[in-house]
Design a protein around this nucleic acid. Structure first.
Length: 413
DNA sequence: CGCGTGACGGTTGAA
DNA sequence: GTTTCAACCGTCACG
């Protein structure tokens, strides 16, 4: 669990802000004890800002490299006041990104493709105008999990105190009223009710004993006792497999068939929305919102210039791959959404002439950034070898995939 | 200079 | 409907 912040860094602190260079405060020399460095103020642009930004959309946006003038709504100001009516920010390389949101799949795919062509990550970073940290992360993830997809964002961890577990706890308690919580925990493990991944904590067991079972209250109607506790090993309506501690690198190598990750599939592809085709309406609405002159859609994945219109025209399905597939790629990827469809819109990363922020889109032929001194390699970057990446659009495991660095513990001391 | 890594501000979605 | 929480994201800068 995330450490309780003694210094709530999320709170807009007064100490932050100002010129980052001037405010280069005490930087812990040692890596381990590195102090939080002062960050330059970020002119935040939310992906949730209401549309109709009054023509600000698409305009070149300055980024925080310019220190906010004194008195300007800096980091201490309410976030809502800091937002501008645009979507996306521009990174140091001139690329557009949406803070907090994954890069489009097309970009992710290009990163992997270029890496497979032998292009160095630093060059990929410059070409695609994606930070090298992001390139590194995506490539590392791909090599580790075989997937280029981002992880599942949001949601909550699956509950471990399933009805079956509660029932077992109740049984244990009834069988031995003096049993300790830790003993119950051990028995849950010993009896195979839980495994080490989903066994409740002692405190959870104590809470169950206190709240759900009470002082040996007569067991009411058994709460849908499911003897098959293994069904809850991974309580999503997906494959019942315990989350691996770490996705093992595939023995076949980076480009071989990647390991099979755990798909996050509980918002099933067979949802009512998909079945009823409601997405069609959503798609049309998104396309409408993304028409020329309008502000960006709330989500970058829906930017017409990002995934779609750059190659197929606004509001037009890309080679039969409708938005459901794309959304699925981002949010709840469906393993069936392969690259066979992606191939038609791979040249997704066209960049405007230098001096403008790079956007994911534009004319299909302008994939190679013409601007900066970066020179594209001689190898053609067209459509080739997409089949190799066909498996790359599986969803990486939600848990256990963070082999290095893990999640973002935000430890504060 | 290239790259791995962690801090950070942000989004997201279930509880 | 709102809040909380814990997952994720990409960028940035350190080493």
């Amino acid at each position: 669990p995330r450490a309780v912040p003694t210094v709530p860094s999320r709170t807009p602190g007064g100490a932050r802000g100002g010129s980052p260079a001037a405010a280069a405060g005490p930087r812990g020399g040692g890596r381990r004890g590195r102090l939080p460095r002062p960050r330059r103020p970020r002119p935040f642009r939310s992906g949730r800002e209401p549309m109709g930004g009054g023509g600000a959309a698409g305009a070149p946006r300055q980024r925080g490299s310019l220190p906010a003038p004194p008195g300007a709504p800096g980091p201490a100001a309410p976030r809502s006041l800091c937002r501008e009516h645009t979507y996306g920010e521009v990174n140091q390389l001139g690329g557009v990104f949406v803070n907090g949101r994954p890069l489009p799949n097309a970009i992710r795919l290009r990163i992997v493709e270029l890496a497979q062509l032998g292009i160095r990550p630093c060059d990929i970073s410059r070409q695609l105008r994606v930070s090298h940290g992001c390139v590194s992360k995506i490539l590392a993830r791909y090599h580790e999990t075989g997937s280029i997809l981002p992880g599942a964002i949001g949601g909550s961890k699956p509950r471990v105190t399933t009805p079956a577990v509660v029932k077992h706890i109740r049984d244990y308690k009834q069988g031995d009223p003096g049993i300790f919580a830790w003993e119950i925990r051990d028995r849950l493990l010993a009896d195979g009710v839980c495994d080490k991944y989903n066994v409740p904590s002692v405190s959870s067991i104590s809470r169950i004993l206190r709240n759900k079972i009470g002082p040996l209250a007569p067991a009411g109607p058994p709460p849908a006792a499911l003897p098959c506790a293994h069904l809850y090993q991974y309580p999503y309506p997906g494959p019942a497999a315990p989350p691996p501690a770490k996705a093992a690198p595939h023995p076949a190598g980076p480009l071989g068939p990647p390991p099979v990750p755990l798909p996050r599939s509980w918002p099933s592809a067979h949802s009512v929305t998909n079945i009823l085709g409601i997405r069609t309406f959503v798609e049309q609405a998104g396309a409408l919102a993304g028409t020329e002159g309008a502000a960006y859609p709330p989500k970058m994945e829906e930017w017409p210039s990002v995934n779609r219109s750059g190659f197929a025209g606004p509001g037009q399905a890309v080679n039969g791959l409708d938005k459901a597939g794309m959304d699925g790629d981002i949010k709840y990827p469906q393993p069936g959404a392969g690259l066979s469809s992606m191939g038609t819109f791979l040249p997704a990363c066209a960049y405007p002439p230098s001096g403008q922020p790079g956007v994911y889109g534009g004319s299909p032929g302008a994939y190679i950034a013409p601007g900066p001194p970066w020179q594209p390699p001689a190898a053609p970057l067209g459509h080739h070898g997409h089949g190799e990446l066909a498996m790359a659009f599986k969803q990486p495991a939600r848990e256990g995939e963070r082999g290095r660095g893990g999640r973002d513990p935000r430890g504060y001391e």
